[in-house]
Design a protein around this nucleic acid. Structure first.
Lengths: 335, 335
DNA sequence: TTGTACGCGTTATCAT
DNA sequence: ATGATAACGCGTACAA
């Protein structure tokens, strides 16, 4: 296994140009205190030799990596299947561009050791994590030696040890539930998300809040898992149990879409027989029949805020610890 | 901006354990020629101090990075919206795990310089590229100093300078078109993919091949862009132009799904009034109404083959330059 | 403005 | 089996 690396080094450029290594370094890094004529001459040599800085050496010497890691959970297929993540990443990448920092997307291996080695190994200056299933102890170990920003709130709020950017899940769920109540529904079922998801918990809470504020008792609540198939299963369970409800609020759009399929197959008309609402406003939510009432979350903005926070922390600036972005009710024809 | 890095070094561990740096290095790297008792003692210190190897220093000294880059095109939203990519990445990641190599997903900035600096900067030992829009000159520059493997065939086949793993797009398109012809269709429209995509070109060619083999003239061909919205637009254009066809073959499933929506909205019955076929076999293709006839491409296997090739090249092994994986016709109820 | 020289944390070679 | 010690390629005081 021979070393493939291009092998043309600062030293070689310096020799060829008849200057010192330090000078070439300055020129390559755009330090202003250098004679323009000399810089020009050196740059010619740089191009001619095809010099490319060795990033490992650079970060070893400079003690900074010039990169931010985006750590995504192991479940690759789900990650890529959900448009929500795409929007988030687009927002992050947008802010990152032109910052001089690189974005490394890392698919977290099951082995947390590998993950920590990577983050603490000096290859990145900060990390953006997707909060899904992250051990608190692991998290605090990370943030002890590296700026860490979470997408979504920490699941364990007792020890708010790190920065995060969340969206107002609770408020959004309250809006949509209130909307259903205002439409006259008095018996609203909910398909909730996974137990370990803070977002799912918050959406459930918003649903409960709206009921309490209206003095109305909550309807049946069944468990779901944020997938379309899970929505199908939950809806079938709901109907099979003979629960009497005139509306169902699914904790995300994928489950809402699965629910709509079940209702249609059972001959129920939406929204006349039963109304359906979701959460996320994925692109296809506008194209379902009928179009889905849902809650829009500003994913791109969330991504941008995450990146901004990470970069600010790297720069040593003060950053507010928790940021919660507003959500918006999108009323369509399914309610 | 203070250096955040954990600062606990091999040297410190060595001092604390009363051994030399070299010994600690050997233990950390699992070199067998070391006294088990000593190793045990040192490992205690390693944990106690929370030592984590500095990866920059390691790759500088060892002249290898222990990582493979996956370079994806700039269009983040499209990338994440398409389950095909998810499967590909899952396949890559699956092979990579346990190889000791890390997978860095890099979203290529518009600036090719940044990309090349990154790939040639010694932070990765090999690169897997998605062939979409890559300049030939750029490519050959990369592969001159780094093993490069392409997902999909090179767009410019004249100079087969690099390794690639493709699927049999042409064959798959021919299968599905022949299937439609065998069903009795004599006028089959095609919604093709983007001009600059080799996969799109191959699928179009397969469609033409099948017609030629049957001695039947191809139907109308309209342009698409591999997105669902693009499929909607293309289908509408097709119908508005009053093209008479009894079947439509979309170059990928997302466009086929968009097309089905348009047909349904216009009151056309699938497959009675008009048949629809796609390409990719994304998960949701089985859940459309009616389920979509399509071509399955072995994306996970393609990903695995890509990773395998990249790792083999890093190891200095010989690798066959072009690999083409078979595709399979999946007949469902839309045709 | 430019050059000298040291250090970054690790691997690897060579003695021992 | 273990310990010195020289690279690895670069940034950056400090000196000139």
């Amino acid at each position: 296994m021979l070393p493939r690396h291009s092998a043309v080094t600062l030293e070689q450029v310096a020799r060829q140009a008849g200057v010192s290594r330090a000078t070439v370094s300055r020129i390559v890094n755009g330090v202003s205190t250098v004679d323009p004529a000399l810089a020009e001459r050196v740059n010619v040599v740089v191009k001619q030799l095809g010099y490319v800085p060795n990033l490992s050496a650079r970060s070893l010497a400079s003690r900074r990596a010039g990169a931010v890691a985006l750590v995504v959970p192991e479940d690759v297929e789900r990650f890529f299947g959900d448009p929500f993540f795409g929007a988030l990443v687009a927002g992050i990448q947008g802010k990152m561009r032109g910052s001089g920092f690189l974005l490394d997307v890392l698919i977290a291996a099951d082995d947390p050791r590998q993950t920590s080695d990577l983050l603490l190994g000096g290859k990145v200056d900060a990390a953006i994590l997707f909060s899904h299933r992250i051990e608190q102890s692991f998290m605090s170990m990370m943030s002890a030696s590296l700026p860490v920003v979470l997408a979504g709130r920490p699941s364990d709020a007792t020890e708010p040890t790190c920065h995060y950017v969340d969206v107002d899940n609770r408020g959004g769920a309250e809006f949509v539930t209130r909307h259903l109540l205002e439409r006259g529904h008095r018996r609203i079922a909910m398909i909730r998300g996974p137990e370990d998801s803070p977002a799912a918990a918050d959406r459930l809470q918003g649903y409960l809040d709206a009921h309490e504020a209206a003095g109305i008792e909550p309807g049946p609540i069944v468990a779901g898992d944020f997938t379309s198939a899970g929505g199908v299963a939950a809806a079938e369970r709901l109907l099979d149990e003979g629960a009497s409800c005139t509306a169902v609020f699914a904790a995300n759009d994928l489950m809402a879409i699965g629910t709509m399929g079940v209702l249609r197959r059972r001959g129920l008309r939406i929204p006349d027989d039963i109304a359906v609402a979701g959460f996320d406003d994925v692109p296809s939510a506008a194209d379902t029949v009928p179009p889905l009432t849902t809650v829009r979350q500003p994913s791109r903005e969330q991504g941008a805020a995450l990146a901004e926070a990470a970069l600010a922390l790297v720069a040593g600036e003060q950053v507010e610890q928790g940021q919660v972005l507003a959500t918006e009710l999108i009323v369509r024809e399914s309610t």
